[in-house]
Nucleic acid binder design. Structure first.
Lengths: 226, 226
DNA sequence: CGTGCGTTTGAGTGAATTCAACGGCTGTGG
DNA sequence: CCACAGCCGTTGAATTCACTCAAACGCACG
């Protein structure tokens, strides 16, 4: 079911980090401003929020659900740069055109803000600019961590790191809900779907995790040590 | 370690893929401010500029030479996130501690600015904050491009992309000077030194490039097609 | 109770790594 | 000026890990 249903119109802008960014002190003002200036929209699972190459007209915040930002390569491959979880901002950038696409991994509730509105507000209120800066830096930290992950690590290390990152943002750290498909995970970690699957079962065989269906992972022991 | 001669440079240096960021319109103010507030320093080849985990006290701009920013992993591996070329800024971030190290690839002339000084200036002058934001966004674009590169591409594609990015920042696009070692390139592309070497000679066998010593590459034909 | 998609599992292949040795440039000291 | 040492880069051989191709499984949905 590929079908959009973005109340209003399709969207906007480049994204943020690697696996989300939680709200924090300096961003409270930004967060609040987005809510004030923005409008709530609903997006269906797998719907496109904005496409690579489109003009950047809006910024977004995830209220509920999960969003993926990805690049489609000439050879048909897809690279998922990051997943956005509730509380994360994405689409904030400077370019006139989106460098990547954003798509809903699950049904989503988003807040959408006109780029022009946010820019106008940030001119009046310098602290907004500082908040955006802080937000962007944190996105960059995560992106950098992802570069390190993709650099020279085994399939097992990648999957473990991925699960750990997810678990850190979950309420119940010992039970990880995977909102995305194996294909999504593979495209994020630079692996194939088969390798992700094999690695998961390998982790189960080792005794690190227990698979409860394909979308739920129970973590044995307290921690996923590398 | 102190050495001046920081003439205001004309705005040049377009930037490229995953290699640094060149000054542009919105950053001119930032660029100029750095020169005003900062002091010139010289750094020897392979010297450490700052280390992972150290408190963030300064920001830097490359005047001449090349800098690498890298992360050292527990297992001893090193991941080079990016190379900074003349005109590029680095070390700008929000955290109290550096998430990565910076080292001189060649002898370098840098401009160093106290973090506190820049922050104070940016409070007085909102346009500085906006300039930093723009600068950071561009860094992020490059980082994102690098993630895509590392995701799922062959050694040949990685090396070609790397050479292309370098050539785009070179005065003579058809002659690429490599300031860094094979090990540096390998750690940047997520490959081994042997694979980088083999791929280079392979490119030469194909007829795409000519190696003129290990640090100079002549590009045959006009373009390095993917 | 089928149908279809996503996931798992299997077998074989291939690209990049590891291990190992050689070659060549640079800089230093005789 | 030449000889040598040390480092960096290249090349070779064998191995390994992830990929490709292919088929079976299982769960959700109609």
């Amino acid at each position: 079911m590929l079908h959009a249903h973005v109340s209003g119109r399709p969207g906007i802008v480049p994204h943020a980090g690697c696996l989300a960014s939680g709200p924090e002190a300096p961003e409270d003002a930004l967060d609040q401003t987005l809510e004030e200036l923005g409008t709530a929209i609903a997006v269906d699972r797998n719907a496109e929020i904005f496409a690579q190459g489109e003009p950047v007209t809006h910024f977004y915040k995830v209220v509920s659900g999960v969003v993926r930002t990805c690049v489609y390569l000439e050879d048909g491959h897809r690279q998922i740069g990051s997943f956005q979880l509730p509380g994360d901002l994405f689409g904030i950038g400077m370019g006139d055109r989106h460098a990547f696409s954003a798509e809903a991994v699950t049904d989503c509730q988003l807040v959408r803000v006109r780029r022009s509105a946010l820019e106008a507000a940030s001119k009046r209120r310098p602290e907004l600019c500082r908040a955006m800066l802080a937000c962007t830096f944190r996105s960059m930290e995560r992106l950098r961590a992802h570069v390190t992950l993709l650099g020279r690590r085994s399939a097992l290390e990648r999957v473990v790191a991925f699960l750990r990152a997810l678990s850190e943002r979950q309420h119940q750290p010992s039970v990880i809900e995977l909102p995305m498909s194996r294909q999504d995970i593979a495209d994020h970690l630079g692996l194939t779907i088969e390798t992700v699957s094999r690695t998961m079962t390998q982790l189960q065989d080792i005794g690190l995790i227990t698979l409860d269906g394909s979308r739920r992972v129970r973590v044995r022991e307290s921690r996923l040590a590398a």
